[in-house]
Write a protein that binds this DNA or RNA. Structure first.
Ligand SMILES: [Mn+2]
Ligand SMILES: [Mn+2]
Ligand SMILES: [Mn+2]
Ligand SMILES: [Mn+2]
Lengths: 218, 218
DNA sequence: ATTATTTTTTAAGTAAGCTTAAATAATATT
DNA sequence: AATATTATTTAAGCTTACTTAAAAAATAAT
């Protein structure tokens, strides 16, 4: 399947699994940087390939086949991120940028080699789960957004859900890294800010960031 | 530039550097598995992009810009081969197959990371020279085809110039590997066969193979 | 409920990278 | 040198993945 198709099913899958379900063509179009018309066209085409169900004016729904394709691409993306991070010490932003291209030109054979080499990891350096060869995510996600964390508690950072360079740069400069532990000092009710301690340093985050930083109770 | 363009300039470059100069559209078409008409079209298009000089019925000639592009793709190809061979112990055929795709989706940034990681190697696992970042091949090739080697002499294998799975499988099964040393026992004048010793085992190769195995005097 | 706004769909068109078929030029054969 | 063969080019057409503009439907606002 083409790069365009792989990116399309991937965008639907991610939209369905993270944001508030509204997987209309225009929604996907915005994410992919294409016109609404192009997205509608593509949706119709993918329906004939049994990758999704399309009904005029309704939300797009991936078939099992479509989900499998999406998860296979996501697997490759995250395996590349893990490999590049480990081997070349590339940043969270750099690995994403490269993986975005490599994911489409990677055989299942190579993906498995990478996975084996890394010890079949279940998470990538952003904390995103890595689907297995069968396209299944076997881990259960118990993490919550930092914005919903409780005061005076210890947490472990479990996920940095973004693809924004500035966010990642900020995180790496402030020790906000997958696996690191933090202590939540205060939740500011009116400003929605969160004060936390990390490596004995106090930092204050606003909701833009605390909504995309996920944590687990320690 | 697109995958089609990168493969086109690469094919011209390789043709000019290995076979008997005859870089006509049909020649390239055959290598890329496209029609002659498509090759002519592409040649005209690349001329407008200043990647090659095109004159009706004449051989195609890469410009400096075209050569540079070809060498940049070749650099990425061979760096990937070196990396995959080292990390995952993939065969000479497997690394080529994967590199053929990855070469087009690799940033210069990543290529340099790979090169650094490997210690900036000058040769890939086939013995093919790896161009540097500036697109230069700095090594001098003193090797000769095994078909032209002398009897009763020791040689080191310096290059396996092929992309054929059967050839590579044969090589790996018989210790014919980049860097290994061999002893040429006899050149058969009439049959063009070469008898050699490798790890105390005698093997007899015909010209199909001795023309693509390159060696250096020991 | 009617009107205004937004989104989706349809229609028409474009560029890249191919194809096959026919015309033309180059090369090889006799 | 004339002819046959082969290669190259031109022409016309196809598919993919997009675009913009207009029509139609859904949604939001009054
Ligand atoms: Mn990513
Ligand atoms: Mn990730
Ligand atoms: Mn190769
Ligand atoms: Mn090689």
């Amino acid at each position: 399947m083409s790069v365009a198709i792989e990116n399309f099913v991937k965008a639907i899958y991610k939209n369905d699994h993270h944001e508030t379900h509204n997987t209309k063509p225009g929604n996907i179009a915005k994410k992919l940087g294409i016109s609404n018309a192009a997205a509608t066209d593509m949706a119709k085409k993918l329906a004939t390939k049994d990758l999704l169900n399309y009904e005029k004016y309704q939300a797009l729904q991936l078939t099992e086949k479509g989900k499998k394709m999406a998860l296979n691409v996501i697997r490759k993306h995250r395996l590349w991120e893990a490999l590049l991070h480990k081997m070349f010490d590339m940043s969270l932003h750099e690995i994403h940028r490269e993986a975005e291209l490599l994911e489409h030109e990677t055989s299942n054979f190579l993906a498995n080699k990478i996975s084996d080499y890394l010890g079949n990891p279940k998470f990538d350096p952003h904390g995103d789960p890595i689907p297995n060869e069968a396209g299944e995510i076997t881990t259960i996600d118990t993490s919550i957004a930092l914005s919903h964390s409780k005061e005076n508690k210890n947490y472990t950072i479990s996920r940095l859900m973004s693809d924004d360079k500035e966010f990642f740069d900020f995180c790496s400069q402030n020790g906000l890294k997958y696996g690191n532990s933090i202590f939540v000092v205060k939740q500011f009710a009116t400003t929605k800010m969160t004060q936390l301690l990390i490596n004995n340093k106090t930092i204050l985050l606003n909701e833009d960031f605390t909504k995309i930083i996920y944590v687990n109770e320690f």
